[in-house]
Amino acid sequence: EPELVFKVRVRTKDGRELEIEVSAEDLEKLLEALPDIEEVEIEEVEP
């Protein structure tokens, strides 16, 4: 069974934007590691 992958769009407080694809596990780590995120948009990517 393929692992869930999420497309994550992040905007930081200083206005930088970042778009990455991460696994569910990595997404959890990412959110814990970035306390200064202003906006996060997450969508599931079809395998």
Rank of each mutant, 00 (worst) to 15 (best):
Glu1Phe: 13
Glu1Arg: 14
Glu1Thr: 11
Pro2Glu: 05
Pro2Cys: 13
Pro2Ala: 09
Pro2Ile: 09
Glu3Val: 10
Glu3His: 10
Leu4Met: 08
Leu4Lys: 15
Leu4Val: 09
Leu4Cys: 13
Val5Gln: 06
Val5Arg: 15
Val5Ile: 12
Phe6Cys: 05
Phe6Ile: 04
Lys7Thr: 03
Lys7Leu: 08
Lys7Phe: 04
Lys7Pro: 02
Arg9Ser: 01
Arg9Met: 02
Val10Lys: 00
Val10Met: 07
Val10Leu: 11
Val10Glu: 00
Arg11Ser: 02
Thr12Gln: 04
Lys13His: 05
Lys13Pro: 04
Lys13Ile: 05
Asp14Glu: 04
Gly15Trp: 01
Gly15Lys: 02
Arg16His: 07
Arg16Glu: 04
Arg16Tyr: 07
Arg16Leu: 08
Glu17Pro: 02
Glu17Ser: 10
Leu18Ile: 12
Leu18Gln: 04
Leu18Pro: 00
Glu19Ala: 06
Glu19Gln: 10
Glu19Cys: 12
Glu19Met: 12
Ile20Gln: 02
Ile20Leu: 10
Ile20Val: 07
Ile20Phe: 15
Glu21His: 12
Glu21Asn: 09
Glu21Pro: 03
Glu21Phe: 15
Glu21Trp: 15
Val22Asp: 00
Val22Ser: 02
Ser23Met: 07
Ala24Cys: 10
Glu25Leu: 12
Glu25Ile: 11
Glu25Phe: 14
Asp26Phe: 09
Asp26His: 07
Asp26Tyr: 08
Asp26Trp: 08
Leu27Trp: 05
Glu28Lys: 13
Glu28Asp: 08
Lys29Ser: 06
Lys29Leu: 07
Leu30Gly: 01
Leu30Gln: 01
Leu30Thr: 05
Leu30Asn: 01
Leu31Met: 06
Leu31Tyr: 04
Leu31Phe: 06
Leu31Asn: 01
Glu32Gly: 09
Glu32His: 09
Ala33Ile: 09
Ala33Arg: 10
Ala33Cys: 14
Leu34Asn: 07
Leu34Ile: 12
Leu34Arg: 05
Pro35Trp: 15
Asp36Ile: 04
Asp36Tyr: 07
Asp36Cys: 10
Ile37Ala: 10
Ile37His: 09
Glu38Gly: 08
Glu38Ile: 13
Glu39Val: 15
Glu39Lys: 10
Glu39Thr: 13
Val40Gln: 02
Val40Asn: 02
Val40Lys: 02
Val40Trp: 13
Glu41Asp: 08
Glu41Asn: 09
Glu41His: 12
Ile42Lys: 03
Ile42Val: 07
Ile42Asp: 02
Ile42Phe: 06
Ile42Tyr: 06
Glu43Met: 14
Glu43Thr: 13
Glu44Thr: 10
Glu44Cys: 14
Val45Trp: 09
Val45Glu: 05
Val45Asn: 06
Glu46Ala: 11
Glu46Gly: 11
Glu46Ile: 13
Glu46Phe: 12
Glu46Pro: 10
Pro47Ser: 09
Pro47Thr: 11
